[in-house]
Amino acid sequence: MNDYKESKRLIPGFSLTLGITISMLSVIVIIPLLSIFRYALKIAPVDFLNIILQQNIRRAFWTSIVQSLIAAGINSLFGTIIAWVLVRYTFRFKRFFDCLIDIPLAMPTAVAGITLSKLYSDQGWLGRLLGAFGIHVPYTKAGLTIALIFVGIPFVVRVIQPVLQGLNSQYEEAAQLLGANKITVFRKIIFPEIRAAVFTGFSLAFARGLGEYGSVIYISGNSDKNGTKVISYVIMQKLNAGAIDYEGASAIALVLLVLSFFILLVTNLIQIRNNKRNY
C-alpha cells in the first residue's frame, strides 16, 4: 500500500488523465442525466404524483418490472447451466457454441426485434410449430419475455463463466470422495462460490431489461390493455413529434433512473462485499 501511495507522485499524468476522465464523464453521462433530474424536480409534487400514478403508466412500470424479473430469472437458470457446460465439460464444437453466446451482441436491438417477431409470427419457423399447439406468442407477454431473454443471456453467461473457470475443483473432488452426492456438492461447494456472480448476472439482465426498447417493441404489440406496453415505450411516445410531453417523459424517466441506480448500487455493494470485482 505504501509503495502505491508513493507511486502516485512518481508516475506522471495524474491530473491530466483524471481531468479528461472527469470532464468527459460529466459532459457525456452525468450532466445530461442531471438535466432530467433538474427538469423533473421542477414539476410540482402533486403533478408529479399525478403523472406517475396514471393507470397506464403504473401498468407499464409493472409490465417492465415483472417481465424483466421473469426474463432475468430464466436467464440466470439457463445461463448458469450453459456457463457450467462450457467451462466444465469437453464436447465436440464446444468452442463454436461458446461463440454462439455472443449472437445477441452481434444483433442490434432493432434487428433482434423484427427478427423475433418474424420467427414467432404465424409464418415463422417457431410460430408455425407453436401454432400447432395453439400457442400464440406475438403481441403477448410471452413474446415480450422472449425478447428480454434474448438480449439478456450473454450478460449472465459471461459473468458466471470466468468465476467457474477460476474455481478450484479439488474441494468438489474431496467432497465426492467423502461420499457427498452431486446435489450436495453443488449446493454446498459450487453454488456458494458462484452465488455473487449469478446475482450480478441477474441484476445486469434485470437492469438491461427494465429499459429495453428496440428488441421488445415489435413483438410485444405495445398494447395497454394486454399489459404489453413497456415503460421505455411510454417515454418514447412522449418524445414523438406531435405529442411532445417533456414533463411526463422526465417524471417517468426520473423514476426509472432511480430504479436503475438502486439496482446498480445493490449490485456494487454485493460485489464489493464479495471482493470479486473485476476491476
Binding site: P32, I36, G211, S232, M236, L239, Y246, L257, S260
Partner: peptide
C-alpha cells in the same frame, strides 16, 4: 450499461 436508451435521448434533449 444499465440506463435505458430512451432516457439517454431525453437527457440530451433536456440539456
Amino acid at each position: 450499461l444499465s440506463c435505458s436508451p430512451v432516457i439517454v435521448a431525453l437527457g440530451y434533449i433536456m440539456m
